[in-house]
Simulated assay, not measured.
Amino acid sequence: MNSRDVSFKERVANRLRYLWRLAIPLWKFRDANRGTIEQRIANYRFNREMRNILPFFMLKWAGIALCLMKMTELLSGLMLSNAAQSTDHLCATLLCMGAGIAFAFACIVLLVLTTSYLYLSCVER
């Protein structure tokens, strides 16, 4: 491998990490299950202070889930239309399946963010 390939791989990895951090805010929180008791308490307090960023991400993921649901509805309507040819039907089927799986993933992420926010808001240690 030459240095150009390594730098390209590093750039791709950095871009993917950046996109992941735009989508998921959990990297900003600290692990409150490890360390001494004082460290755990300090990490939990830090997480409680940082919980205010979670509603923005919950709205973001709710919007993503809504868009994916509408895309699934649109593609399933295309699959059901009589004018669709066999190749269009196959593409619409595969895209509809992908959109449905992505919708399920978005709902799971939304559920995790919501439960994290509620836990940090309601439970005091």
Rank of each mutant, 00 (worst) to 15 (best):
M1F: 08
M1R: 12
M1A: 14
N2C: 12
S3R: 13
R4H: 10
R4M: 12
R4N: 12
V6P: 01
S7Q: 10
K9N: 13
N14T: 05
N14L: 03
R15S: 12
L16D: 14
Y18K: 11
R21Y: 07
A23W: 07
I24V: 11
I24Q: 04
P25F: 03
W27K: 06
W27Q: 09
K28G: 11
F29E: 03
D31S: 03
A32F: 02
A32N: 02
N33S: 10
R34Q: 09
R34I: 13
G35S: 06
I37V: 08
E38D: 11
Q39T: 07
I41D: 01
A42W: 08
A42D: 11
R45I: 02
F46Y: 14
E49A: 13
E49N: 15
I53V: 13
I53L: 09
I53D: 10
L54C: 01
F56T: 12
F56H: 08
F57I: 00
M58I: 13
M58T: 02
L59G: 13
K60A: 09
K60F: 15
W61P: 01
A62K: 11
G63R: 12
I64D: 01
L66G: 05
L66D: 11
C67Q: 09
C67N: 10
L68A: 00
L68S: 03
M69R: 11
M69G: 13
M69W: 10
M71T: 13
E73I: 07
E73K: 04
L75W: 02
L75F: 01
L75H: 00
S76W: 00
S76G: 00
G77F: 05
M79F: 01
L80Y: 07
L80F: 08
S81C: 09
S81Q: 05
A83F: 14
A83K: 14
A84D: 04
A84Q: 06
S86L: 08
S86V: 12
S86F: 06
S86E: 14
T87M: 06
T87S: 07
T87Y: 06
D88A: 15
D88G: 15
L90G: 08
L90S: 10
C91W: 14
A92T: 01
L94E: 11
L95H: 04
C96K: 07
M97I: 14
A102N: 03
A102M: 03
A104C: 15
A104E: 13
A104M: 08
V109A: 08
L110W: 05
T114I: 05
T114G: 13
T114Q: 09
T115M: 12
S116T: 11
S116C: 10
S116E: 10
Y117L: 00
Y117V: 02
L120E: 02
L120R: 02
S121Q: 15
S121L: 11
C122E: 08
E124V: 07
E124M: 06
E124W: 00
E124F: 10
